[in-house]
């Protein structure tokens, strides 16, 4: 049986192996090592949740702590990428996008187009996202939809350790700017991961489960919720097909459309706010391109049009649950 490691270890291993393979790969961000300039331990944190721990000693000089200065170091990563480095900048929480968005969407994303195809910006921006940690409104958002909106960016939302490693290696080797989003709740998830280097291509959805009754498209952590729901529904005689797009940009629309053409029913599960979300994007896509296949209205299971709340009592209500997915699937299955 193949070796099992966690999502977090898979990310660390991808960074480690790529740094060993290519001297142009550098890791930078707030406390990616931790302890810089301090009298105590170096590599004290290895990232706020320890994801980059150990890289500092293995790759001297290439794991770089930054000031709390997101525009500064994210922009620096982009500038370094313009001259051939392959920086992986960690924007600790994706919510911090608010203080560096210009560098990402006006600079990195647009260089190639604005400069008539003469620029390559192979930067990776890693960030944690997602609710469930009682981290409240400024540390719990999803926001992949915002990046997905911007031409020039690629957006990756791995849902398991295998994909996390392969997609991160692809992200580092990719010649376009890539936003690589890691759900905090997945860090401890274990799965089979090859020890070798490998890539998972962008724009290729995974069909996580096959079924003929209802298509569920789910992103990131929501893939797990969808699997939980599908196992429950299976017992009730409803067979779900689960599609994990893995990247929101590019998006594997073919796999989604083919599945809906087979099942005629679609539920999209997206942890983010509902308006202008991946859920509404995919609902729109399917309504426009597979309308004749639909046997029931499309249902979206999402967070709410409200900030992510703090109290556990509220946050649990906020996050899409397996029970909500079950209810949505049943409603489209039973639709007459």
């Amino acid at each position: 049986m193949a070796r099992k490691i966690t999502y977090q270890q898979a990310i660390n291993e991808a960074l480690d192996q790529e740094m060993a393979r290519d001297q142009n790969v550098i890791v930078m961000g707030e406390d990616v090592a931790g302890g810089s300039g301090a009298p105590g331990e170096q590599d004290a944190w290895g990232g706020v949740l320890g994801v980059t721990r150990g890289l500092y000693a293995k790759h001297p000089g290439r794991v770089i702590d930054t000031p709390i200065s997101e525009s500064g170091y994210v922009g620096a990563a982009i500038g370094a990428a313009c001259c051939g480095m392959r920086p992986v900048a960690e924007l600790m929480f994706v919510d911090f996008l608010g203080v560096c968005f210009d560098q990402i969407f006006n600079q990195a994303a647009k260089f190639r187009y604005m400069f008539g195809g003469k620029a390559e910006t192979p930067v990776v921006i890693r960030a944690m996202y997602g609710a469930g940690f009682r981290a409240a409104a400024q540390h719990s958002q999803c926001l992949y939809n915002i990046f997905t909106h911007i031409p020039g960016l690629k957006v990756v939302v791995p849902s398991n350790p295998y994909d996390a490693k392969g997609l991160l290696i692809q992200s580092i080797r990719d010649n376009d700017p890539v936003i690589f989003l890691e759900h905090k709740a997945l860090y401890t998830m274990e799965g089979e991961v090859p020890e070798e280097l490998y890539t998972v291509p962008f724009g290729e959805a995974a069909v996580v489960r096959e079924g003929h009754d209802v298509t569920i498209v789910a992103f990131g952590r929501m893939v797990l919720k969808a699997q939980e729901a599908a196992a429950d529904l299976q017992k009730q005689g409803i067979h779900c097909e689960i599609i994990d797009p893995r990247t929101t940009s590019p998006l594997d629309t073919d796999t989604i459309l083919e599945s809906v053409e087979k099942t005629g029913r679609l539920v999209v599960v997206d942890e983010s706010h509902p308006r202008c979300s991946m859920a509404s994007d995919i609902a729109g896509l399917v309504a426009e391109q597979a309308f004749d296949s639909l046997k029931a209205p499309i249902r979206q299971v999402t967070g709410f049009h409200a900030p992510v709340p703090f109290s556990d009592a509220l946050e649990e209500l906020y996050i899409p649950s397996a029970a909500k997915i079950v209810a949505a699937v049943k409603s489209v299955k039973e639709y007459k």
Partner: peptide, 16 residues
């Protein structure tokens, strides 16, 4: 099966 295809793809994508 889809899994057979996916498993072979996983193999084919390994470095080397």
């Amino acid at each position: 099966t889809r899994q057979l295809v996916d498993d072979l793809l996983k193999y084919k994508r390994l470095e080397g």
